[in-house]
């Protein structure tokens, strides 16, 4: 299955990636070859095999429900380009 230029543009938009017009043909080729690899894997008989969510043969460790973090707002907000009244400020979000 070959990808179209519009597929690449859509994926780039969803990932908020800015891509150069000139690079689109190459991305299209590369992504198509990844899908071909996926197609190859689709052909494998997996009857009786459990789905794999993680490559490690391990399970999640849990933590106790305890508050261990203290307020570090000032520290964290040093990097923020804009802030006011303890809030991070971002370009207006219009619903």
């Amino acid at each position: 299955m070959a990808l179209e230029r519009s597929d690449v543009e859509k994926v780039a938009h969803l990932a908020r990636l800015k891509i150069e017009e000139n690079d689109i043909p190459e991305y299209t080729r590369n992504l198509t070859s990844i899908l071909e690899l996926v197609n190859q894997m689709q052909a494998v008989d997996i009857e009786g095999t459990d789905p794999l969510a993680h490559p490690l043969d391990a399970t999640q460790r849990l933590r106790h429900d305890e508050v261990t973090e203290s307020d570090q707002r000032e520290h964290f907000q040093q990097n923020a380009p804009a802030k006011e009244a303890g809030l991070f400020l971002v370009p207006k979000v219009i619903e």
């Binding site: 305890e66 508050v67 973090e69 307020d71 570090q72 964290f76 303890g86």
Partner: peptide, 17 residues
């Protein structure tokens, strides 16, 4: 994370890394 979820805190004082 180990940040508190208590209601009504000052903005961003319960948001850890």
């Amino acid at each position: 994370s180990g940040a508190s979820i208590a209601f009504g805190a000052e903005p961003n004082t319960q948001a850890c890394a």
